[in-house]
Computed example of a mutant assay.
Amino acid sequence: MADIADFANDLVQERLDQALAARNAAKPALAAHSFLFCEGCDDAIPEPRRLALPGCTQCVRCQSIDEAREARHAR
């Protein structure tokens, strides 16, 4: 059976959730910046890739290897 402490805890949690949601909604959307060099092999990431995929951190080759590795582990 729920007592007054449970109700108070639920109310506090609800207020915290509302405050966090309001804070996240007020944040400006930041544009992700692409890396100039691949974090996997340190080769330059071509400009067309950086423009097409903002926020990329790997070259096509390293990204393909990571995706294949993740697909293998997902099975």
Rank of each mutant, 00 (worst) to 15 (best):
L36W: 03
D3P: 10
L20S: 07
Q58K: 04
A31R: 09
C56Y: 00
L20H: 14
E39T: 09
D66I: 00
A44K: 07
F7A: 08
R50I: 02
A19S: 12
Q18S: 12
D66V: 01
A26G: 07
A21W: 02
N9F: 14
I65V: 14
A2Y: 11
G40K: 09
F37G: 03
N24Q: 12
R69A: 05
F37Y: 13
A68C: 02
A44I: 11
A25N: 14
K27L: 15
A74Y: 03
V12T: 15
E47V: 01
R49H: 06
A5Q: 12
S64H: 09
N9D: 15
A68G: 00
E70G: 00
T57K: 15
A8W: 00
L30H: 09
A44E: 15
A52L: 07
N9S: 13
M1V: 12
A31Q: 00
L16S: 04
K27M: 15
C62R: 07
D6E: 13
M1N: 04
H33K: 13
L51E: 10
G55M: 08
R61M: 00
L36K: 14
A26T: 13
L30M: 05
A29D: 05
D6A: 09
I45N: 02
P28G: 01
D6S: 11
F37P: 03
S64R: 12
N9M: 00
I65Y: 02
D10N: 15
I45T: 01
A19I: 15
L20W: 10
E70H: 02
S34I: 11
A71M: 03
H73M: 08
Q63I: 02
A29G: 02
E47Q: 06
P46D: 00
A2L: 10
F7C: 02
I45E: 01
Q58S: 06
A44R: 07
Q58R: 13
A29C: 03
C62T: 05
A71D: 06
D43S: 10
H73Y: 06
L53W: 08
A8T: 09
